[in-house]
Design a binder for these strands. Structure first.
Lengths: 132, 132
DNA sequence: ATAAATGATACTAAAGTAGTATCATTAAAC
DNA sequence: GTTTAATGATACTACTTTAGTATCATTTAT
């Protein structure tokens, strides 16, 4: 039962690191040393953040990555969506069929309510709010 | 991001079914028909619940399973612990080492707080509370 | 031209989840 | 006492997600 995976965790670290560099473009090599994240894994992750519009990228020598948005506009829920597909905790196994079990539906109802709470709390966390 | 797995979901259904049978021992074959859960999977799951003390089992012809406890004393968190190992949402990747990233720690802190909320809400759900 | 960077993409490995199969043991029913 | 219908124990397969690696192509400052 994990709310965030390693991808998301690493992404938070990398984004916080970049947020402290004030717009300067930072190459992966520098981040690998600073954050101790396996290089090819970090590369892939940053490329994803780039295609998702969270980062700007610069090719060629002296290239690298920089935040494409203000840290206060980069939300933890964005990262979870990007790396974990969805923020939904729970899904009815019988959707579209008639549910044969009322207790299960009641369970789903409880889990749904908890999910809403979790989302509410996650949705106020931004990179800016994690900075210090 | 899943709070409960299929095992846990199936276990809830089976336990609710048994709770409605008033102490009578019910064989797997009956539950398979009523709950539409794959037989060998249900068997394994019930055996686990039995060794964990949630169910009593009776061997031989006319045997089966029955609740070993009052439905109000069987908690959803018990089932999650049994089938999903733990209720922890979050775990520091750097425990026992010095954490190289304060932002990550702050993230952990946020997730921990959310986890406590989730646990609090899950911990009041019992089989009895799901019955109708 | 070269070197240092990202883009794109395919691949491998490990872990967790879901489900199956089989043989042994037990105990009621006949 | 044999049969039958049940659980006990345990090993196995398949699928999915997560984690991580590898490589070649392209770009651009020097």
């Amino acid at each position: 039962m994990k709310l965030i995976t390693r991808n998301t965790d690493y992404a938070v670290r990398a984004l916080c690191y970049l947020a402290r560099q004030d717009q300067k473009s930072v190459p992966v090599s520098e981040m690998v040393m600073a954050l101790k994240i396996p290089r090819p894994f970090l590369r892939k992750l940053l490329q994803t953040l780039s295609t998702e519009g969270i980062l700007d990228s610069f090719k060629g020598q002296a290239g690298g990555f920089a935040l494409a948005k203000n840290p206060s506009k980069i939300w933890l829920t964005d990262l979870i969506r990007i790396f974990q597909g969805t923020v939904e905790l729970n899904e009815c196994i019988f959707r579209k069929k008639i549910c044969p079990n009322r207790s299960t539906c009641k369970l789903k109802h409880e889990i749904d309510a908890i999910e809403k709470d979790v989302l509410k709390r996650l949705s106020v966390v931004s990179i800016a709010s994690l900075l210090s």
